[in-house]
């Protein structure tokens, strides 16, 4: 079995569960994904499957090298390729398509995406520092204050929380519950939020931590 899919964030809403309580959900357009390439232990040194996300509107602007790569699998066009783990035994072949139905309702998934970029952010916004006093003659309003000791150690310790780029980084939201799968529209509804803006691409994987799977190292 292939363990995941590529998806596109559609947006958030809320739905009512059986007992009438409100559940916040994110709608993801998950798949259909075409298999482009199979990587094997023998050839590439690890086994994986490369998937291509199939858009509603096929992009004509793809580079010739990418087109050649896709043509090999008989995939018409795609903008985004991602690799997923899978065990060699399955009968997935290049060119075949995968749909949302690889996920079941109630199952847990991890969603990986790129968070919204916040730009170069100060220490108050980025790390939640309290900043300085705004009155009583204070002139340190949004500064971090002291960032280290004196002659020993005579340097700033690595990992010090300082201003810098905030957001626009890879984020994984773990163990999100699948609330609903809709094969007609290729929708996957997961409980809670996922990284990124509407229209951003995400990877959906079966949850890494699963109760029935006690140790992964075996």
């Amino acid at each position: 079995m292939v363990e995941g899919l590529i998806g596109k964030k559609v947006g958030m809403t809320q739905i009512f569960s059986e007992d009438g309580s409100v559940v916040p959900v994110t709608v993801i357009k998950a798949g259909p994904c075409a298999v482009v390439q199979k990587k094997s232990e023998k050839k590439e040194g690890y086994s994986a499957v490369q998937l291509a996300f199939m858009e509603d509107k096929l992009s004509k602007k793809i580079s010739k090298p990418l087109k050649g790569h896709l043509d090999k699998a008989g995939v018409s066009s795609s903008r985004i390729l991602r690799e997923f783990q899978f065990d060699d035994s399955s009968e997935v072949q290049p060119g075949s398509q995968l749909f949302v139905d690889i996920f079941q309702e109630g199952e847990k998934v991890d969603v990986i995406g790129t968070s919204k970029g916040k730009g170069f952010a100060g220490v108050m916004r980025r790390w939640g520092f309290h900043g300085g006093k705004s009155t009583h003659g204070s002139r340190t309003y949004r500064k971090p204050g002291a960032i280290g000791a004196s002659a020993t150690p005579a340097k700033v310790i690595k990992g010090r929380k300082l201003p810098g780029q905030m957001g626009h980084q890879r984020v994984k939201n773990k163990n999100l519950q699948v609330v609903e799968t809709d094969k007609d529209n290729n929708f996957l509804l997961v409980k809670g939020s996922i990284p990124g803006a509407k229209g951003d691409y995400v990877m959906i994987k079966k949850a890494y931590f699963r109760p029935e799977k006690k140790s992964r190292k075996e």
Binding site: V10, G11, T13, I15, F16, V27, K29, D182, N185, F187, L189
Partner: peptide, 12 residues
Amino acid sequence: MNQMNLVEEKQL
């Protein structure tokens, strides 16, 4: 937003 309507419509 069209796609969101598909999800919400069932419950409205």
